[in-house]
């Protein structure tokens, strides 16, 4: 589903005054697009994602998914957090099914399919404490996918993982995206990741947070991180990123 984001202002009231976190963030995401959002820490990228998810409704503006205005969290806006946030008392398959019953043949079949997709066969009955960080995050992705969300929002989902696990999960995510054609927004602080996964990279500015650039990445999949054209685009995003990392001159 396509997403129309129009956030005029999002601010937090602190003791020392008002902090503007997001300011005039406007953009449109087409159905089936994969948007990656990159920016310095504290630029409000996670806040942006929470607003799209409906977890944060205290802002000035609106977010539409298709024709539906986002007013509260729902299974339509799948969300994968930085930490896996699995229920420690449920097994892998129970975590994926969560409130849905595994006794239902249809659910059972879908859960088994997803366990296959995220390559967790053999761990259906394992508890989260028995899983590695990468495996837990795959369970979290499967949990979100089971509900067939119209958009999947990922908040630095691979940030806490080692490089090897991260690149493996990036492959898994691309495979899922290719198969389901779900619209995705992925927030990251990893430059390579943003260029590797996205159709477009949104580079965010800080204080107040706003979208500085939207850079289209018109490389075919599968992409190779060592390819010259990939490197060229990476340089381009990096240059944009560096201009905003420096302190603003107008202050």
């Amino acid at each position: 589903m396509d997403i129309t984001i129009d956030i005029r202002d999002k601010s937090f009231k602190k003791e020392r005054g008002v902090v503007h976190v997001l300011d005039h963030v406007y953009f449109h995401i087409d159905d089936g697009e994969f948007i990656t959002v990159i920016g310095p820490s504290g630029c409000g990228k996670s806040t942006l994602l929470k607003i799209v998810a409906g977890l944060d409704t205290d802002y000035d503006g609106s977010v539409y998914i298709g024709r539906q205005k986002v007013q509260k969290p729902s299974v339509e806006q799948g969300f994968v957090f930085q930490e896996h946030r699995l229920f420690p008392w449920l097994t892998v398959e129970e975590n994926i099914a969560a409130d849905l019953s595994l006794n239902n043949a249809e659910i059972r079949k879908k859960v088994d399919e997803l366990i296959d997709i995220v390559r967790l066969g053999g761990f259906e009955k394992a508890y989260p404490k028995e899983l590695s960080g990468g495996m837990s995050q795959r369970v979290a992705i499967a949990r979100a996918l089971l509900r067939k969300p119209s958009v999947l929002l990922l908040d630095e989902p691979f940030g806490a993982l080692d490089a090897f696990t991260r690149s493996h999960l990036q492959e898994v995510l691309l495979q899922v995206w290719a198969e389901t054609k779900t619209t995705m927004i992925l927030v990251t602080h990893d430059l390579d990741e943003s260029v590797y996964l996205g159709n477009r990279v949104a580079v965010m500015d800080t204080h107040p947070g706003r979208i500085r650039h939207l850079i289209p990445i018109d490389l075919p999949f599968p992409r190779r991180k060592t390819h010259p054209s990939f490197q060229k685009l990476r340089q381009k995003v990096l240059r944009e990123f560096e201009t905003i990392s420096e302190p603003p001159t107008t202050l």
Binding site: A53, L55, P73, S74, V75, F81, R143
Partner: peptide, 15 residues
């Protein structure tokens, strides 16, 4: 944090 997950997965009160 798990309450956020419950909201996103739209758990009923009983669930």
């Amino acid at each position: 944090k798990l309450f956020d997950v419950a909201r996103i997965l739209e758990f009923s009160k009983w669930k």
